[in-house]
Design a protein around this nucleic acid. Structure first.
Lengths: 196, 196, 196, 196
DNA sequence: CGCTAATCGAGACGGTACGTCTTGTCTTTTG
DNA sequence: CAAAAGACAAGACGTACCGTCTCGATTAGCG
């Protein structure tokens, strides 16, 4: 049967060219304006070569994003939770403002209407969340994080504000934004008891 | 001159039919699948009647969303900050799962690539943020909120987790979600000092 | 219902531009190399405007050819059969070497695989054959043509050699070709009885 | 050097399978719908094996047609010209309605736009014409054909009507068609002089 | 009688055109 | 004169083949 192509015969150069072209275009013109034809043209590739290996432009960008993820180390662990959270959120903030940020933004859009894309996005998010929860679990043991904190909720308390600013563009996203968020979130919004 | 049409002669019935049709479609098939032609067909209206008064489908939905906003009261103020925050986030959570939620989701997508839509979205968000900051400012005066908390950051600490769950679909969004978030965020993530 | 478009709203300029572009392309690059996209591009027209009104490129060229036919007078009738046949075949020979000849050649090709085109071609041919048979019938009455000659066979004896040369390109097609054919065909291939 | 392949190493089975597959397809779906990919698939052969030995699908079919020709005897010669012409045209008529007829029809189409195919077609036609002219030349000597008849024109007077009916499908092609044509063409279209 | 070079089946590749779909504009007709 | 209806130019969609180009895996003939 020949309905699904043979991955062994796949041209690795074309694959790379397609992933790069797709990401570049995404950064230049925005996800909505990226077309398969434009990707093919820029990658110097036939349209069919894209359709042969990916079902949609979201799938191409998803693979690009997965590669980015793989290149990254996991969650930092120096023993200092606050410092590690800051390191990690800073890295994400840097990613948001790179080409990969445009790609990720596009994928989050695609995930709203494309179930396959949603699965891929969820998978990527999940890994990041799991890594974070593991780091937080360790912090609970070392007494850096309150024991009754639900870890997944905690993750969202940390990353939620970041995504809110970046995705909803409610305000500019300054360098030190997450430092302030983390400080506030760890100390709590309640005023200090008294003699503080 | 016929470049800009005369708003006085505008057919109010058509306007309503278009706004309703657009929102309904958005809820039924999702923002990406909504087309101007489908809106026109469902509203029993010519395409040109839409293009005459709105520049894009995002603009139509934006107007729908603005009307929804206008119908809503402002931020609740009972004197109990936690309770008011819970009331407000619960209302938003209810809105998210209504038709208007589908519309709002679509607008957030549109805002990623359409500058005009982004402005409208920002404007709507801004109003909500301002209302919230005002309530928070009052809470600082009454001692319910620590004085050194940056209010805009605080707003995002409260709403960020909610948007993260809803928009990124990282997990299901349970009824009591915001109760847990608020508790954790107010108490702070740090373990209680000692004899607590 | 809107499946079949309203001919009243049709843009006559586009129609003309399409017919002309198609015929020109046919003459320039040959029927096989004519594409709907090229016709649309040259006519300054969207592809859909062609597909809306014609099912195939053959149908476009068929309409072109029908217009050519309508512009032409019928079969000549001076009272001299041989002269009239020569006039008519000469006119056809001239048409063969014009742009319309390239179109007609293309239609004869299309008719080999496209039933609709075949019907159209048959219809055009039929009219020419009927005109010719009528002229021949009159000639039988005036004693210029043998009475026992089957008229349709006679038509093909006259036009068959011409199409053979032109379509099969067996040899060059000289100006005086049909004069020789007609002479031979009228006198008969048998040697003259004797003292002639 | 490997630019032109070595015919000695050629797989004769594949050659046969390709020729047969091409002809069968031509008969089944018509020349226009025959694709190299379909020929290869039906022949159980790689595309490259076709492209290695033939420049186009027309070339494949041309070879098929040449083989058919070679299997046929030459022009019949019983001493009775009319009978021989009828024998020969009947054989051709039979060929037209066989698979080879579909192939030949396809080649005549290909010849309209492909110069190489046109050469091959011309060559095949030429042989048939030469055979016919030789038979006619002999008939002139034996007094069965008028001496002043141009032989090539005569050939076309005989075969032109047949091709007209078959290729242009102006009418059905009955068994006895050529008998009528030959009778009329030999007697001449002019009425018999007088007391006949 | 094993080596080696070419042919083979298979199918991925860069392309072109297909016929369809949707977009936003323009045009015609109706109220 | 606005609105409905919908034709229009434009261009992306996903598919089918084109003719070229690798791949291993047989052959076939030379050494």
């Amino acid at each position: 049967m020949s309905r699904q192509p043979d991955p062994n015969r796949r041209n690795e150069q074309s694959r790379q060219a397609i992933l790069t072209a797709a990401a570049d275009l995404c950064a230049e013109v925005g996800y909505a304006a990226v077309t398969i034809e434009a990707i093919a043209a820029r990658a110097g590739v036939g349209k069919q070569t894209i359709y042969r290996w990916w079902p949609s432009k979201a799938a191409v960008l998803l693979e690009y994003m997965q590669r980015i993820r793989e290149e990254q180390a996991g969650f930092p662990d120096t023993g200092d939770l606050m410092a590690d959270l800051l390191t990690q959120t800073t890295a994400i903030q840097r990613l948001f403002s790179s080409d990969a940020g445009a790609v990720w933004r596009g994928l989050l859009i695609a995930a709203q209407s494309d179930d396959a894309a949603a699965d891929g996005v969820r998978d990527l998010l999940e890994r990041a969340i799991v890594e974070a929860t593991e780091r937080l679990a360790k912090a609970q043991k070392t007494g850096e994080l309150r024991e009754d904190a639900d870890l997944e909720t905690t993750v969202e308390i940390v990353f939620g504000p970041l995504y809110h600013r970046w995705l909803l563009r409610s305000r500019p996203l300054p360098k030190a934004y997450m430092r302030d968020v983390l400080k506030l979130v760890f100390d709590g919004l309640k005023p200090a008891p008294e003699g503080r």
